[in-house]
């Protein structure tokens, strides 16, 4: 749509700007201030300059946590985005089943995050959980508190359970917005099912997919409550992702300066990757 140039439109955006800036900018500034100081208590603090940054950037434990986090987040995207698109294509489009499936599909999204951990704990435990008992009954050794792979895959399965529906709902709405004329044109051309998907449906999904990829990347990169409840980061440090590392630093060791420097680096990583996603996806559709 043609949009007219009008800088008074800023007045419409002002309420949003004020509300978000209040909660966003002041805490961000404070964290930057923390990150260059050693805070011992409310009244004792020293300026340490770049000390924390140097220390964190050379911390091998942190490199390992970052690696695990990247592998996990990209696995999440690799599973959830294709699965979400496939399921959105299978959703019913008319009749009473639309409302029923929507309700059922959306349900996991409305479960508080710590409860997601609880649900999966009860479901996957090898002594009382349905999944654990069944797998062990089939002769597959499975215990997510001991096996590294079992733990990692359980956390991944939990995230798929929890969040694939978001991708499904977004893609479903994108698919419903495609006018019938497009399908008719494709049918006249004798396009195959795959050609319809590739040239009619997928291009029109880029808008919703941008937001789905961004939301899923950002949230999985900051995943905290669910693995904390389920595995506590173990066994060893297989499921200790970045935010748990950070929380231990900030809360358990009360090392607030170091944790602040860490969270700013963390923020820069998310910002850079999200910007690349955002730019690549939005620009590739414009031409």
């Amino acid at each position: 749509m043609d949009r007219t140039q009008n800088n008074y439109a800023w007045l419409f955006v002002l309420p949003v700007l004020v509300l978000v800036a209040f909660s966003a900018i002041i805490p961000l500034m404070t964290v930057v201030n923390y990150s260059v100081q050693d805070v011992l208590d409310a009244n004792t603090r020293f300026f340490v300059g770049d000390e924390w940054y140097r220390e964190i950037l050379r911390d091998p434990q942190l490199h390992a946590a970052l690696g695990r986090q990247l592998v996990f987040s990209f696995s999440v995207l690799a599973v959830q985005i294709p699965l979400g698109i496939a399921i959105a294509l299978c959703m019913p489009t008319r009749g009473i089943w639309v409302a029923v499936t929507l309700v059922l599909v959306a349900l996991p999204l409305l479960v508080p995050w710590n409860v997601v951990g609880t649900i999966w704990q009860l479901f996957a435990r090898s002594d009382i959980g349905l999944l654990g008992v069944t797998l062990n009954g089939l002769g597959i050794e499975y215990n997510y508190t001991r096996g590294r792979w079992a733990a990692w895959l359980t956390v991944l399965a939990m995230d798929v359970w929890h969040w694939t529906s978001l991708v499904v709902l977004l893609c479903y709405s994108g698919l419903r917005a495609i006018p019938d004329a497009y399908y008719q044109a494709a049918r006249i051309d004798g396009a195959s099912r795959w050609a319809v998907f590739r040239h009619v449906q997928l291009p029109r999904l880029t808008g919703v997919l941008t937001i789905a990829v961004l939301l899923r990347f950002m949230d999985s990169f900051m995943i905290y409550a669910e693995p904390f409840v389920l595995t506590g980061g173990g066994p060893g440090s297989t499921t200790t992702f970045l935010s748990q590392f950070l929380t231990t630093m900030a809360v358990a060791q009360f090392d607030i300066g170091r944790a602040a420097a860490f969270s700013l680096i963390y923020f820069l990583i998310i910002l850079a990757i999200s910007w690349v996603f955002y730019t690549v996806i939005t620009r590739s559709t414009k031409i």
């Binding site: 978000v20 805490p27 964290v31 905290y224 607030i256 969270s263 923020f267």
Partner: peptide
């Protein structure tokens, strides 16, 4: 502005909680 709005989801909560509390 639009991208900035999106970035607000990206702040890792653990450390930002303290300034939120103080604010």
């Amino acid at each position: 502005l639009f991208f900035w709005l999106l970035t607000n989801r990206m702040a890792p909560p653990a450390v930002f909680l303290l300034p939120f509390f103080n604010l």
